[in-house]
Design a protein around this nucleic acid. Structure first.
Length: 201
DNA sequence: CGGCCGATCCACT
DNA sequence: GTGGATCGGCCGA
C-alpha cells in the first residue's frame, strides 16, 4: 500500500475526495502501536459556502484555523464534550474544505482497538460512528493539525496517515445520502455529501 | 463573564 | 424511540 500524497488532498472537489476516500485505509500510530482499517463512511464539508461547515461564511477562530491549512492536515475537534471527531483537510492553504471520517472496517491492531473501546469482540456498532472511530484508533482532539502526509513518522509519539490499497471500488458499491446531524444547516442539510461503502451490489 | 449548544453515543423504556 | 452525559467553543452583553 502507498501513503496518499499531498496531491490527493490538494484537489478542489472536496465531495469527490470524500467519495474517493471510501476504500482507502486510515492508520494511527500511538507509542509504536499501529491500528487502522478501511474507510467505509465519509462526509464532505464544503467550507465557506456550506452552512453545515464550521468555516461557513469564512469564520476563523482558534479551533477552525486548522481547516484553513494545506490539504492533508488533520482537523480534529471535540463534539458534545465527549467525542473527538476526525476530519481530513483538503484543497490548498486558505480554503477550509474538510472530509469527516465517520466509519472504518478494522484491519490492523484489533486487540488494541477492542481494549480502547472496552469491547470483547468487533460486532455491529464497533467502529461505525465518528466518535467510535477515534476512540478505537486512539485519536484525541488535541492532535488536531497533524500532517497526514508524514507517514508513520511520529510527532510527540503520535502519527496518523492514509494509504491506498490499490483496489478499485465500483460506483455501484458506494451509497450516497445526506449528512447526519446537520439539520441546522437548512437547505445545505439536503446536499448529497455522505458516502457509504456497501460491500455488494 | 454567563449561557447556550453541538458533524454523538449509550443506557434505558 | 428517547433523553441524559459532558465540556470546549462561540456569541452576546
Amino acid at each position: 500500500m502507498a501513503i496518499l500524497k499531498r496531491s490527493f488532498y490538494l484537489k478542489e472537489d472536496v465531495v469527490g475526495i470524500a467519495r474517493d476516500l471510501i476504500g482507502k485505509h486510515l492508520f494511527s500510530s500511538a507509542g509504536g502501536i499501529i491500528t487502522g482499517g478501511m474507510i467505509t463512511e465519509t462526509e464532505a464539508y464544503a467550507g465557506v459556502t456550506d452552512r453545515a461547515s464550521h468555516a461557513f461564511g469564512g469564520r476563523r477562530t482558534a479551533r477552525t484555523e486548522v481547516m484553513y491549512s494545506v490539504g492533508g492536515t488533520a482537523y480534529i475537534y471535540l463534539c458534545y464534550g465527549v467525542h473527538s471527531l476526525f476530519n481530513v483537510v483538503t484543497n490548498i492553504e486558505g480554503i477550509p474544505h474538510a472530509v469527516l471520517i465517520r466509519a472504518i472496517s478494522p484491519t490492523k491492531g484489533l486487540p488494541e482497538m477492542l481494549q480502547r473501546t472496552g469491547k470483547a469482540a468487533p460486532g455491529k456498532g464497533f467502529t461505525d460512528g465518528p466518535g467510535k472511530v477515534t476512540k478505537a484508533l486512539g485519536i484525541h482532539f488535541s492532535e488536531t493539525g497533524l500532517d497526514l502526509t508524514a507517514g508513520a513518522k511520529e510527532r510527540d509519539g503520535r502519527s496518523i496517515w492514509i494509504e491506498d490499497p490499490g483496489t478499485v471500488i465500483p460506483a455501484s458499491a458506494i451509497e450516497v445520502s445526506t449528512r447526519i446531524g446537520v439539520q441546522y444547516a437548512g437547505e445545505d442539510a439536503l446536499l448529497p455529501y455522505r458516502f457509504l461503502y456497501r460491500g455488494k451490489k
